[in-house]
Amino acid sequence: MSSETETGAAAGSTADSPSSSINLESVRTVAKKDFQDSMRSWVFWGLSVFFFTLLVTITGVIAYFGEDIAAQGATTDVLVGLVSEITRLIIPLIALVLGWKAIAGERETGSIKILLSLPHSRKDVLLGKLIGRSAVLAISLTVGFVLAAVVVAALLGQFDVADYAGLLAMSILYGIAYTSIAVALSSLTRSTTIAGAAMFGVFVLFYVVWNTLSNVVWLLASREILFFDTVTYTTEIQGQSVEVERHQDWVYFLVNMDPGEAFRRTLTLITDADLIELQVELNAEMFGGELPFFLQDWFSFLILLFWIVVPIAIALYRFDRVDL
């Protein structure tokens, strides 16, 4: 319709950079600004201090009373197991609180117009926000982990640093996943009230709904409602073959889709800790010898990546198309 004028315009400008493109320099600038800004949020630091305190106290108590465990050389296991559980519950909270206003808040106060009056694309802004806030979260986690480690080291002498570093790395990844969810949801509305409600919704979804999913499906299956059903397999208990029922494959897949569950399973990959409590124990026997690929632990790592990539990808697509 207007191709003539557009060609003319493109020829006039030196570099033809469509408005919706991503410019890394722009992303970096936005991320830096957002990092400066978020680092000074007292709400964020309040939550972080809460997290540090919880972590240090509990690890301290365990370390103090856990000399027997230490004697058995299982300190790291206990430490990783405990820290990972606390982290699993608290990180989403910190990430959601850190991210809920990322875009909605700027739209509500209008300051998004400051960002977008400058030569940044909307995609640059979203990615910059995600990176800036992820960096803030990563710093908070690192500080918390190091503090906890210092306390444990002081009380117990030593522990496996590699396992612990792996836990930190995975925790950061897990935090980024929730930051991605938060920033993405925040970009879908211009009301911080709605954004806040959405964050609460996410919290309920993954803390409550998802955790009862396995039981609910079991219930539905036992009453043979709709397509819910169980699969029967044989296992040996004390030398005897026994028929046992299990969920259908997709149920396990769904349960594993929870970022928290993915975080736990990924941890079993990188640490030797045996104390991580999985929501559903899976073993190869249940599937006649080998676990389907989508239930293997390495796949959980992909699920974690999925939760980083997909929310922000949806937001990138949609945020380009709305009126501010």
């Binding site: 315009a9 600004k33 400051i114 009056s117 694309s121």
Partner: peptide, 23 residues
């Protein structure tokens, strides 16, 4: 379609906007 190029060469004072409190 060329918003970024335009904004690179434009200075804007938007209306009814709050600055970043913490910066």
């Amino acid at each position: 379609s060329h918003s970024r190029d335009i904004r690179a060469r434009t200075g804007v004072l938007p209306e009814g906007v709050e600055t970043y409190d913490r910066l």
